[in-house]
């Protein structure tokens, strides 16, 4: 049983996942430097799942869901949390086995636990994306999402990427046997300066919960949403040839940054409660339009499979 040494801290769970997926040949990327709602928004997933070129990455992505803020009181809910994301294109035939290997990597002995793949189809209305897959249960607890991407930004995924998303706090709490996220050891409890998750994040959860729910200036946010929307479209309307260098340059990524921005601002507006049910659909539709435009642009880039000489 020596193989199943339990990790001692939140960070050790992360480090082990990094080691495991690096060992499987994934490029270990760093988090994207913008506010996103989930690891899927990282351009390394959204954009790179498009087009024919192979791709294999894993990364931690800090994610924000303003409406989930609970001032640090709720044992499981946070407005800022971490996702671990793996994206491999094309999805290897043994991806399920690779995934199970990662659970063993973080100390889950699959011979003692009940691991189940329970139907859960994924859809992101804001990204115009969907896929089929499962939520993975370990003894009745959802520990990951497992999705075969079918469409992103309105484009069929060819080949199909396999995406794994681990909710890191929840998974680590389970592995470490902790009931309240704030009580979870962040680093080694035997370290000279041991820190709990709460030491790192309780205060920020309190501050952001207040700001998200009650303080964020909605007029400013509404203005910023429109600005991001306009900017995204304007970037994509620029000529495809850089007049300075003469080189072809479709600015899919800068435009996509604006799409991400619009999406996050929408989430903040939602948390402020200023978006009605009907408006909600309209906002989601506007972000989806941006995501589609960015996807359209990305497939016109080299990374998206564009080849010189092609129309």
């Amino acid at each position: 049983m020596s193989q199943f040494v339990q990790p001692k801290s939140f960070q050790e769970v992360i480090l082990r996942l990094q080691t495991y997926w690096a060992g499987q040949g994934c490029a270990i990327l760093q988090p994207y430097d913008m506010e996103v709602g989930a690891g899927t928004f990282h351009p390394a997933t959204t954009l790179r799942s498009l087009g024919p070129l192979p791709w294999s990455v894993a990364y931690v992505q800090p994610s924000r869901r303003p409406t989930d803020g609970r001032y640090g009181d709720n044992p499981n809910r946070l407005q800022h949390y971490y996702q671990y994301q793996v994206l491999i294109k094309p999805a290897p035939p043994d991806l399920q086995m690779l995934y199970l290997g990662s659970l063993e990597g973080i100390g889950i002995d699959v011979a003692l636990h009940d691991i189940r793949f329970v139907e859960d189809d994924w859809e992101s209305p804001t990204l115009g994306a969907w896929g089929l897959g499962w939520e993975v249960w370990c003894d009745g607890m959802e520990v990951s999402q497992f999705t075969y991407f079918q469409q992103v930004g309105g484009h069929d995924c060819k080949p199909v990427s396999g995406e794994l998303t681990y909710g890191l706090e929840r998974l680590a709490m389970y592995v470490l046997g902790v009931d309240h996220v704030m009580d979870m050891p962040f680093n080694d409890p035997a370290a000279p300066i041991p820190l709990l998750y709460g030491d790192v994040f309780r205060q920020t959860e309190q501050e952001y919960s207040r700001w998200n729910f009650d303080v964020a200036d909605t007029n400013v946010l509404l203005k910023q949403f429109k600005e991001a929307e306009v900017a995204c479209q304007a970037i994509l309307e620029e000529p495809r040839q850089d007049p300075k260098t003469g080189a072809r340059s479709v600015m899919a990524h800068p435009a996509y940054d604006q799409c991400i921005k619009a999406s996050h601002i929408f989430n903040l507006l939602d948390a402020r409660g200023v978006i009605s049910v009907t408006e909600r659909q309209a906002y989601i539709g506007r972000v989806r339009t941006l995501a589609r435009l960015c996807a359209d642009a990305f497939v016109q880039t080299r990374a998206g499979g564009w080849v010189a000489g092609q129309a």
Partner: peptide, 15 residues
């Protein structure tokens, strides 16, 4: 509801 997987064209409910 069916899906494609890997780089194939076949559709099945899961791979």
């Amino acid at each position: 509801k069916s899906m494609r997987w890997g780089d194939g064209t076949l559709r099945w409910v899961r791979p």
